[in-house]
């Protein structure tokens, strides 16, 4: 366990889940470092979490404005150097808009905002954010989104599948109609990850359905220790 690991948590105007994300980081044993959207400064953090919410009111498209914020310029540069980055929900949308992850998140099939506890199957367990999971393990984590329908060209989907870059897949019902039941993906190096479900809301049975989500934050700590 790396007591000295510092994980940044980004706050945009309209971010909702930065408090829970910071709590998850602390629960995993790292220091949570607040990062402000208007600062082109990552404060020397070892990893970054881009949490959920409605950055810039979801104006234009979810994540489209956040992508151009000063902090995201730094996040993109850090990701290029191999810094682990995790985008959750709106954060996943921001990472796709930023080009750090392929594809896009489209309006849910059925148009309904979906808020429920969702079963996921862990598929890639070698990324910086998922080594604590057993391949095929099923975890229960909340989802809450209106635009979580992951879409990409077939060639991109085939590449993601072929390279084992699907992190989690929905099981027992797909909440949003995403292609191939994809809930989350990682980049080619396994350092940048994004998913629609909320692991930060499932770190403690007192406040979430399970503590299944904590493994993502513990995984990142492991990756930082190993680095």
């Amino acid at each position: 366990m790396s007591a000295g690991a510092r994980i940044g948590v980004v706050t945009f105007p309209g971010t909702l889940d930065d408090v829970d994300a910071s709590r998850a980081v602390r629960r995993a044993g790292a220091e949570a470092v607040p990062l402000w959207h208007a600062d082109a400064d990552l404060r020397g953090v070892d990893a970054v979490v881009v949490p959920g919410g409605f950055s810039y009111g979801d104006y234009l498209r979810c994540g489209a404005i956040a992508r151009f914020s000063p902090v995201m310029t730094e996040v993109v540069a850090a990701a290029g150097r191999g810094t682990p980055v995790l985008g959750i929900c709106n954060g996943f949308q921001v990472l796709c808009e930023s080009g750090l992850l392929p594809g896009a998140l489209h309006r849910n099939v059925g148009l309904n905002y979906v808020c429920r506890d969702q079963w996921l199957r862990a598929e890639n367990t070698t990324s910086a954010w998922t080594t604590r999971y057993e391949p095929g393990a099923e975890v229960l984590v909340p989802v809450k989104h209106g635009e979580g329908n992951y879409v990409a060209e077939d060639a991109v989907l085939d590449e993601l599948e072929g390279e084992g870059r699907v992190l989690f897949r929905y099981v027992d019902g797909n909440p949003n109609g995403s292609a191939r039941d994809i809930a989350g993906i990682t980049d080619a190096r396994g350092r940048v990850a994004g998913l629609m479900p909320h692991p930060e809301h499932a770190i403690d049975p007192l406040t979430g359905p399970t503590d299944d989500g904590l493994g993502m934050f513990l995984s990142a700590l492991d990756a930082l220790v190993a680095a």
Binding site: H106, R107, N108, V151, G177
Partner: peptide, 14 residues
């Protein structure tokens, strides 16, 4: 416009 191959749930509702 959403690409032709992209399912458009809003258009479908209309």
């Amino acid at each position: 416009m959403p690409k032709q191959e992209i399912l458009d749930p809003q258009g479908q509702a209309v």
